[in-house]
Simulated assay, not measured.
Amino acid sequence: MSQYNTTNKANNEVMAMSFNGHTLQSIIKDGQIWMTASDLAKALSYKNSKSVTNLFNANSSEFTSGMTTVTDSVTSAKTKGLTVKTRIFSLRGCHLIAMFARTKVAKDFRKWVLDILDREVSTPAIEQSPAITDADWVRYSRSMTIPEMAQFTGHSEQQVINALHDIMGSPARTTSPAPVMTPELQHALDQFWGFIATQNIAALNHSHKQHELAISIPEVYELAEPWQLPDTSLLYKALRLSTTPRFYRANTVIASERTNKSRRVWVFIKSVGQTAIAKV
């Protein structure tokens, strides 16, 4: 059984939820749903909570206090009710852990969490969620589509697009000073196109124009391991300096040739006769 409306739930109340045949014991804290590392591991098909702890430790800088915290929990009667420190994750924290997870059910679990979040934001909450920072938006854009970010944050898709535009900026104008290619930016560019060369480029291209290559950056990062691609803050600068293929537009919305839906992409112009991206 799954329950979603936590408005009238008391702190520390345990609520049963069901995912993929597993019963998860969620905890209500400040009107929000939280899960222990142990239940999160069960949902993601890990053997034990150590795998979730390792994912968190490796990416702890990505998490805010609104995503995870450590709380006291009471052990069983056999241990005379001793208390232990237990790490718990909010739904947003669960979603981020699932972004780093590589199990087969991780994608389905992310969708499940987003569905609960979507229901949660449609009901009154005890407290407003913490404000989303610019760093949060950049992190979300690295691994989520526009609709996913809208569900995840409780914003409309247009609000998400506006926020990303404000943070990441518009395409460079011809009157702007010419940016300088540094070794660091060149390395980021080589790393990105090198990874693209290992993929089915036709499956990544959202443009219907033969001379264009329209790529969703979050979609690319969803396919890669964390170590395979540079930090997006560096990549966004480097991509504007790309010459093969040549940078054309950044963060523009087009009707995807593949999905027939609106998609925010970076657009590049292929070189004459270019059919694929050469490995670097």
Rank of each mutant, 00 (worst) to 15 (best):
M1K: 14
S2R: 10
S2I: 06
Y4K: 15
Y4H: 14
T6V: 11
T7L: 14
N12Q: 10
H22S: 15
Q25V: 04
S26P: 09
I27R: 13
G31H: 09
G31N: 11
I33G: 08
M35W: 15
M35C: 13
K42C: 11
Y46V: 03
K50Q: 12
S51I: 03
V52W: 06
V52A: 08
T53D: 15
N54S: 05
A58Y: 07
A58Q: 13
F63S: 07
M67C: 03
V70A: 12
T71A: 07
T71N: 09
D72K: 12
S76W: 10
T79C: 07
G81N: 15
L82G: 15
T86A: 11
R87M: 08
F89W: 12
R92K: 09
C94Y: 10
A98C: 13
A98G: 13
F100K: 13
T103V: 04
K104G: 05
K107H: 08
D108V: 02
F109L: 02
R110A: 10
V113K: 05
L114Q: 10
I116C: 08
E120A: 05
S122C: 02
T133L: 07
V138I: 07
R139G: 07
Y140T: 00
F152P: 03
H155K: 07
H155P: 00
I161Q: 01
L164D: 07
I167K: 03
M168G: 04
P171E: 06
A178D: 01
T182P: 05
E184K: 12
E184Q: 09
H187F: 05
H187R: 12
H187W: 04
D190N: 08
D190Q: 08
W193K: 05
T198M: 09
I201T: 06
A202T: 07
A203S: 07
H206R: 04
A214K: 00
P218H: 01
E219K: 00
Q228G: 00
D231E: 13
A238M: 08
R240V: 03
P245L: 08
R249V: 11
R249K: 14
N251G: 14
W266V: 02
V267F: 09
F268L: 05
S271K: 04
S271Y: 01
V272S: 09
V272Y: 08
A278V: 01
